[in-house]
Simulated scan of single mutants.
Amino acid sequence: MDVREATAGDLDDVVALHTRARVAYYGAGGLTVAEIVTPELAREQRDGWAAAIAAPHKHVRCAVADGRLVGLLAMGPPHTPEADAAQLYQLHVDPDHWSRGVGSALHGHFLRHLETEGLAVGVLEVWERNMRARAFYARHGWHPDGTTRPAPAHTHYLGMRRPHP
């Protein structure tokens, strides 16, 4: 598996992988496909990924195995003003490649980003019903920070932090 910078040419594959991942984790959390995949959300998702790939202050990485996109990482400055931190915006692995080390490899790229930028802490948000992701982040040293914001289905996104040694 190789991890490389995403390009505008990756956009279709990025959106397709993100959609598959969202259907898997939101579905496991009780949402229906009709709640997860709508034309409006599809447009927002495509526009968001295109903007992230083009933004000079954000970094999008693609994990590629056998010529196929199998994982995504998006990172950059925190959404809330916080000195000495970077935000892990999104980390998605194609459900067909879960438990094969793709997520851990991408997470390692985030940690290297913290180190390269000389930042002391990583921040992220995770959907409270995404137990798989919450367990993944806990295994990788992340801890809840007590922050929340509204999420689909009257739930919350939970804030997490990870100090960089």
Rank of each mutant, 00 (worst) to 15 (best):
D2P: 04
P163E: 05
T32S: 15
H109Q: 15
V93K: 08
R134M: 07
L119G: 00
R134P: 01
R134K: 09
S104L: 11
M160D: 00
E128G: 08
E125F: 10
M131T: 13
A42F: 02
P152Q: 12
M160H: 05
L88K: 09
V33N: 07
A6C: 12
E117N: 09
D94L: 12
Q87R: 11
A138S: 13
R112T: 08
L119T: 00
R149T: 04
R68D: 02
L124E: 03
D96C: 06
I53T: 00
H18L: 05
W49T: 01
G71S: 02
T19Q: 15
P152L: 13
A16H: 12
A21D: 09
V123A: 06
I36H: 11
I53A: 02
P81V: 09
R129L: 12
A74H: 02
A74Q: 06
A42L: 04
P144E: 15
V60P: 01
A34M: 00
A52W: 13
T116Q: 14
E115G: 11
A120M: 03
L31T: 03
A63P: 01
Q90R: 04
R100Q: 15
H107N: 13
V15K: 08
Y26S: 06
T155A: 15
T38N: 09
R129I: 01
P165A: 10
D10T: 07
L111K: 11
R162D: 00
R61K: 13
A120V: 03
P165W: 07
H92Y: 15
G71L: 00
T148R: 15
E82I: 07
A83T: 05
W98P: 00
G103S: 12
E128Q: 15
R161V: 13
D84W: 08
Q87A: 14
Q45M: 13
F110I: 03
R161N: 03
A50M: 07
L41V: 01
Q87W: 01
A135C: 04
A8F: 02
M75W: 03
A21Y: 13
R100I: 01
G29K: 10
H156Q: 12
A51W: 00
T155Q: 11
V60K: 07
E82K: 10
L119Q: 06
R132N: 10
V33K: 14
L72A: 10
T116E: 14
A42C: 00
E128V: 10
G9K: 01
P163W: 02
T38I: 06
Y137G: 08
G122N: 01
V126H: 05
R46S: 00
T32K: 14
S99I: 01
